[in-house]
């Protein structure tokens, strides 16, 4: 994944350096602008067992700001926003790897540095007893729940940064 540059964003932004679970890292630029979740739609994506995007629907493409070609083959953490604590994503993968469903509220980063909130569900795709990938379906979240998560994720992030 390439680092974001000033050309990707419009308006004021802050720069962050993210390090992912696989040891790779990326510079991201984020703005304060939220993009509302489209009414009635579901964002659907699918990854291989290592988290590489293999399929995405039109709503995913529209909301992420990337083209489909830019998304396929990239790690799913291309959407990771610096306001999200690492522990939340560890929980996603730990849960899905056991075959259980994971639900949660996630703040996602767009290609243009804006963000959008989703209520996400992740499940493993099991075929003939083997996990062949993961599917993630995101839907419109409740604003009340988002507000609860903003506070919670701030606390979790602060804890991660101090440890």
């Amino acid at each position: 994944m390439r680092d974001m540059t000033e050309d990707d964003v419009t308006g004021d932004f802050t720069a962050h350096h993210l390090t992912y679970f696989d040891g790779t890292s990326r510079r991201v630029l984020v703005t304060d602008e939220e993009v509302p979740f489209p009414e009635g739609k579901l964002i659907v994506s699918r990854t291989d067992p290592t988290g590489i995007i293999t399929h995405c629907n039109k709503a995913f493409v529209e909301m992420s700001g990337f083209s489909e070609e830019e998304l396929i083959g990239q790690p799913h953490h291309i959407l990771r926003h610096p306001d999200m604590p690492k522990a939340a994503f560890k929980d996603v993968w730990d849960t899905a790897a056991t075959g259980a469903k994971w639900h949660g509220y996630v703040k996602n980063l767009r290609k243009d540095g804006k963000y959008y909130w989703v209520y996400a569900t992740v499940i493993s795709n099991v075929r003939n007893g083997e996990v062949v990938g993961f599917a993630s379906v995101r839907r419109k979240p409740s604003r009340t729940k988002i507000n609860e998560c903003v506070g919670l994720y701030k606390e979790m992030l602060a804890e991660e940064q101090s440890s």
Binding site: L42, V44, R46, K101, T121, V122, I123, N125, R127, A135, S136, V137
Partner: peptide, 11 residues
């Protein structure tokens, strides 16, 4: 079909 059922499971 399996993938559609997976999606249904998430809902």
């Amino acid at each position: 079909t399996e993938f559609m059922i997976d999606l249904m499971d998430t809902l």
